[in-house]
């Protein structure tokens, strides 16, 4: 299967800088925010967004980690059990604005599980969603508030996100049967 790079480390950096600005702009500041990274690759993304916001807004946004394994709707059909990580959110979510951060938005089922998980921790004022890649094919009425890159895909294809902290490099690639015209390389 051909693996095609659709975002380089510079593309990822620029997209995250833009998303960080959008988050602060839409929330009129960063005071009430908590960036919550979804395991596994949402976690380094959330940390990077916090660093970028710190750099231009001079506000330290709390960063949490969320594992949705205990909330999945498909546990009994999975061939293997997901490894569950500890959920760590440093402060009470009640009345805060939660920015969920993940690498890829696809069916929306992970987000549904993530929202359930957040509500078990308290009652946030708002939940917003930031993703590096939106690849379409939603199965639930869920959308992202902040998107690094829209990538129209076929269901047969696969998106892989590599993060320096975990994989040694920053890169997004697309694997599978596709003609070049299928993929939009434009950011949003």
């Amino acid at each position: 299967m051909p693996e095609k790079i659709i975002a380089t480390s510079d593309d990822i950096r620029r997209a995250l800088v833009r998303v960080a600005h959008e988050i602060v702009e839409r929330n009129r500041g960063a005071e009430k925010l908590i960036l919550v990274g979804m395991h596994t690759r949402g976690v380094p993304l959330a940390k990077r967004l916090a660093e970028i916001i710190q750099s231009f807004e001079n506000v330290s946004v709390p960063v949490g980690e969320l594992d949705i394994g205990l909330y999945r709707d498909d546990l009994s059909t999975l061939p293997l059990k997901p490894v569950i990580h500890r959920t760590k959110i440093p402060i009470d979510v009640t009345d805060r604005r939660i920015i969920l951060v993940d690498d890829v938005l696809y069916t929306g089922r992970s987000m549904r599980a993530a929202m359930d998980a957040v509500f078990d921790l308290g009652r946030p004022e708002k939940i917003q969603l930031a993703v590096l890649v939106d690849r379409g094919h939603r199965e639930l009425p869920i959308r992202a508030d902040y998107v690094g890159k829209n990538v129209p895909t076929s269901r047969l294809e696969e998106i892989r996100v590599y993060m320096k902290e975990l994989d040694g490099r920053d890169e997004v690639s697309l694997i599978g049967v596709s003609s070049p015209g299928d993929v939009s390389l434009k950011g949003v």
């Binding site: 690759r41 394994g69 997901p82 696809y106």
Partner: peptide, 21 residues
């Protein structure tokens, strides 16, 4: 290895195993 999102549905995505299953 990067997390996989693809192949039929997201529901088949398995978190990458850092410990054997």
């Amino acid at each position: 290895m990067a997390q996989r999102k693809g192949n039929a549905t997201e529901s088949q995505t398995i978190e990458q195993m850092d410990t054997p299953a």
